[in-house]
């Protein structure tokens, strides 16, 4: 079955909610007219990126009628769009909403807020605490929403895959560095490597929508892409320019990829959980979980006592 996915690579107006609502609604109308089943807009598409203390001025509740109205007149179409969310507890988050038919059916709050180098997000927005896949019904079953930097932490997309996502949607505002140089291309190349690796190892499709345009001295690079579950590129937008690109995801390909490369089904979450619990306990100084000898062969391997003995021998030498 074909799913038509539109990537709306646009340049939001910094701090101008009304202008951006108009921009998003116009692009969405184009995508719907072109037959999109899902339209993806960039990170903070409704607000712009370098907001600093404008954050409270442009924040919206997740039930804000202006947000819910996006795509309300195209009932069959999913829309993913980034905005500044003000929670009921008055937390300000960099969020992405998944909308359909005037309702919000999924919400992800950016978990990893880059606060290093040229980024200062942790100063102005608060981190999300949840990593889930969102139920969307057949044929995609579930999708995993994330925002830009979230993708640089591989546990997040892989958890969403284990939670049932057949499609990962990453919305981004990636600034260009050293344009055209080896270093600049390497920055974009790193994104490509990462996406292709996640698609391959997660046997999952990826819709990546990165913004373009300019804020202060930053230029955002665009290059939005749709990847198939084997890491192949199904659609790609140009660098630096506004564009609306459409790609077709064939879910039969996804089905056969999951059959021939059953990595997701073979995952050993109970092992992962046990080792994660142990590492967390060690770091936090909490009581360690029982050290069960679950693998008989481990007796033949050097244990901690032997390691220490070897260390002492090396020191003596």
């Amino acid at each position: 079955m074909e799913v038509r996915i539109a990537l709306a690579q646009l340049a939001p107006h910094l701090g101008d909610l009304d202008a951006n609502l108009a921009l998003v609604n116009n692009r969405l109308a184009e995508a719907v007219a072109a037959g999109a089943d899902l339209a993806v807009f960039p990170e903070l598409a409704l607000t712009g990126y370098l907001l600093q203390d404008l954050v409270p001025d442009v924040a919206m509740r997740a039930d804000d009628p202006r947000l819910l109205a996006i795509g309300a007149d195209a009932p069959g179409v999913f829309v993913a769009v980034g905005f500044v969310e003000e929670t009921r507890a008055r937390r300000f988050c960099n969020s992405v909403a998944l909308l359909r038919g005037g309702r919000i059916i999924g919400l992800h709050r950016k978990v990893y807020l880059p606060t290093y180098g040229l980024f200062d997000e942790g100063r102005f927005t608060r981190a999300g605490h949840q990593i889930r896949a969102t139920e969307v019904g057949d044929p995609l079953h579930k999708v995993g929403l994330s925002v830009c930097e979230d993708f640089w932490h591989p546990f997040l997309p892989m958890l969403q895959v284990q939670d049932g996502a057949l499609l990962l949607i990453n919305v981004a505002a990636g600034p260009a560095r050293a344009p055209g140089s080896a270093a600049g291309l390497a920055a974009i190349g790193s994104w490509h490597k990462m996406q292709e690796t996640y698609a391959l190892l997660g046997t999952v499709a990826i819709a990546f929508c990165n913004r373009v345009g300019n804020e202060e001295g930053l230029t955002f690079w665009g290059g939005s892409r749709l990847l198939g579950p084997d890491g192949s590129v199904l659609a790609e937008a140009p660098l630096y320019e506004e564009a609306l690109v459409m790609g077709v995801l064939e879910t039969d390909d996804l089905r056969m990829q999951r059959y021939s490369l059953p990595l997701v089904g073979d995952e050993r979450l109970e092992l992962v959980r046990r080792e994660v619990d142990r590492i967390v306990a060690e770091r936090a100084g909490l009581p360690l979980p029982p050290d069960l000898d679950l693998d008989a062969e481990s007796a033949a391997l050097p244990g901690p006592e032997l390691d220490r003995e070897l260390d002492r021998e090396v020191e003596r030498a």
Partner: peptide
């Protein structure tokens, strides 16, 4: 020396000025 691709760089700066 720090190399840069001049055409892309020029495009980005022109876009910056326009913005």
């Amino acid at each position: 020396l720090p190399l840069i691709e001049p055409a892309t760089t020029a495009d980005l700066i022109v876009a910056f000025i326009s913005s």
